[in-house]
């Protein structure tokens, strides 16, 4: 029992010989992570490799800005589909953003707590319905229902503005935009709801104590504090709209050219791939479709990146999309 004796037992505990059980644990985790991440990265590289003949033949700018898509002549240009993707997403956003933000406000600011959960669940259920079911419903129910409206617009405003002109065959950019808007409302609403719910209660109560209405609370507290979070939610909704495939394929009319009117049939990037891939047997046709997939990938990574950036910089409170 002298002061020079070393606590051998504890020392041995702290520095196990070799890897030790936890060393094996960490090593296993690393190996598993590598085993998962490498194939994911590999398939991205692999996909790019598939499309090399397309880039060699048309060049990146040539392919992206090409106006003509004619597989039987081995001519492939992506512009009609980029246009379709942007137009349907824009239509969807114009409809979905105000509706979704208002629903989020309704749930967090207006409804009594008991009703909140039920309304929130009902809206969330819209997000659970598979894309193909939206497409089926859109094709058989919504497209015929929208037609009188389309004809009315084409018959009045459409006489002046070619962008709104007829004919109105039914399946169109517009129909696709409406279906997509229904699909992204729950996404934007759910994320905005989280943002609004994070508003400090004291600030709300302060405005109410000063005699403010609910509108005053929203105007002076909820919106200013939640602005960037809602922006992130909107951009994530946009990312969803851009990538939406099957429902769009079923209601957009499938025409590989730029339609002059929003009531014309067209194609988006995702829908042309889904529609033509299984029958692609012309020269370079499958490769060109995969190249369209890469264009779609780049657009959606940029949009998602923007949302992540906004969230990281301004709105730490918003959860990641599940």
């Amino acid at each position: 029992m002298t002061t020079t004796s070393r606590p051998q037992g504890i020392h041995a505990l702290r520095r196990p010989r070799g890897l030790g059980q936890d060393g094996v644990f960490r090593l296993t985790l690393r190996v598993v992570a590598v085993l998962i991440v490498i194939p994911v990265l590999w398939m991205m590289v692999d996909t790019f490799a598939e499309t090399v003949p397309v880039w060699e033949r048309f060049g990146i700018p040539g392919f992206v800005t090409g106006l003509r898509w004619a597989p039987s002549f081995t001519i492939y240009g992506a512009l009609p589909f980029i246009y379709g993707t942007l137009l349907t997403s824009a239509i969807a956003m114009v409809i979905a953003v105000p509706v979704a933000v208002l629903i989020a406000l309704l749930i967090t600011e207006i409804l009594p707590p008991r009703a909140r959960t039920w309304v929130a669940v009902a809206v969330d259920l819209l997000a659970a319905i598979p894309s193909v079911v939206y497409g089926l419903w859109g094709l058989l129910v919504l497209v015929p229902v929208l037609r009188p409206f389309e004809q009315a617009v084409a018959g009045t405003a459409g006489k002046v503005v070619p962008f709104l002109a007829g004919p109105t065959p039914g399946p169109s950019y517009f129909a696709a935009g409406v279906v997509v808007s229904i699909m992204i409302i729950p996404i934007i609403a759910a994320l905005s709801r989280e943002v609004f719910a994070a508003t400090p209660r004291l600030q709300r109560e302060a405005v109410r104590a000063l005699g403010g209405t609910r509108w005053d609370v929203i105007r002076t507290v909820v919106i200013p504090l939640g602005r960037s979070g809602v922006l992130a939610a909107i951009i994530l909704g946009l990312a969803r709209a851009i990538g939406e495939t099957i429902a769009v394929t079923m209601v957009i009319g499938n025409a590989p050219k730029i339609g002059a009117s929003i009531f014309s049939p067209g194609f988006t990037l995702a829908s042309v791939i889904a529609n033509e891939f299984n029958e692609a047997n012309q020269e370079l046709h499958p490769e060109a479709l995969i190249a369209l997939g890469l264009v779609l990938l780049v657009i959606s990574v940029l949009v998602n990146g923007l949302a992540i950036l906004i969230r990281q910089r301004f709105a730490r409170g918003v959860g990641r999309v599940v």
Partner: peptide, 28 residues
């Protein structure tokens, strides 16, 4: 940093349109 990059890959995957996932797995 490694965990950060794993989270990044996962975030990218979460944001991918499902059709792009289909194309990736087709190639792989």
């Amino acid at each position: 940093r490694v965990a950060g990059s794993v989270r990044f890959v996962v975030d990218v995957l979460a944001g991918l349109p499902s059709i792009v996932v289909g194309i990736f797995v087709y190639s792989l």
